[in-house]
Design a protein around this nucleic acid. Sequence first.
DNA 1: TGTACTTCCTGTAGTAGATATAGGTTCAAG
DNA 2: CTTGAACCTATATCTACTACAGGAAGTACA
Lengths: 134, 134
Amino acid sequence: MGGLSIGELARRTGVHIETIRYFEKIGMLDAPDRTPGGHRVFDDGHLRTLKFIKRARELGFAPTEVRTLLDLDGPAEACCDEVRAVAVHHLEEVRRKIDDLTRLERHLAATVERCSGGHVPDCAVIDMLETGRP
Amino acid sequence: MGGLSIGELARRTGVHIETIRYFEKIGMLDAPDRTPGGHRVFDDGHLRTLKFIKRARELGFAPTEVRTLLDLDGPAEACCDEVRAVAVHHLEEVRRKIDDLTRLERHLAATVERCSGGHVPDCAVIDMLETGRP
DNA sequence: TGTACTTCCTGTAGTAGATATAGGTTCAAG
DNA sequence: CTTGAACCTATATCTACTACAGGAAGTACA
C-alpha cells in the first residue's frame, strides 16, 4: 500500500519536488495517479525508480545512461548483458577521467610548487596558463 | 600590429566564433575595435586572453575561477599570492574529485566483476543501483 | 566598376538539467 | 469551518554555450 504525496516522496529520496515533476514531464518517471483534487499519489514503484535514478546520477551515470538502464530494467529478459555493457562503458569513462585528472593534478602541483608567493611580476600559474608549460 | 578578424581569431584559438561573441557579451573578453562597416578587429591582447581562457577551461577551472584569474592578471601588484590561492583551491578540488572517482571505480569494477552476463533475473549492476551495495 | 562569393553582423531561439517564482487550489488538523 | 501547509500549473531563470535567420560588409577577379 503506497500512497505517497510528492512531498513525502521528496523527503524519502532527497530529490526536490520540482525535480520530481520535471522527471515526470520528461518521461523519466511514470505519471502517478491523482487524487480527485489533482494531487499526485505515488506508489512504491515510483519510490524505487526515483531512488534508482538518484543513485545512478550520484555514481556519475549520465542522464541518457540512466534512461537506458531504466528501460533495460523493465523486461527481465533484457537484463545483465546489456546492463553490464552500460556499466562497463561507464567504468571506462571513469578510468579515463581519473587519468586526465591525475595528469592535471601533477601539472598544477608542480606549478604551485614553483610559485614563490609574494608580489613578483612573473607568476608561475599565470605563466602556465599562458604558455601551457608547468 | 594585430588586426584579426573574428574568423581568424577563431581559427588561431580553436574557439567558435559564436563563443567569442558570447565571451564579449558577458564581459570575459574586452570589446574590440570595429571597421567602419562594423566588423570586429581584434588585437594580440585579445588573442592572448582568449588562449588563456581556453587553456584554463581545459584545465578544469570553472568559468568564475577563470574570471577571477583574468581580473588578477591585470594589475601586476595583485599577482602570485592571489593567483596561487585560486590554483591551490582548484588543486584541492581536483584531488577530491580523483578520490571520489577512484572509489566509484572500485565500486563499479567489483560490481561488473560479480556480474555473470547472460539472461539471469537478478543483475549485480541493477542490484547495486537499487541497494547501494557493490 | 560589376558581380559573385565568403565572411561577418545582430537578434533571437534552442540545448540539458534542472531550479525558482507567481498565483491559485486542495488537503488535513483543530 | 477556518486556517495554514502542501500542492497544482505555467512560465521564467540559470549556465555555458550553440545554432539559426536574414541581411550587410568585405574581397577576389574580370
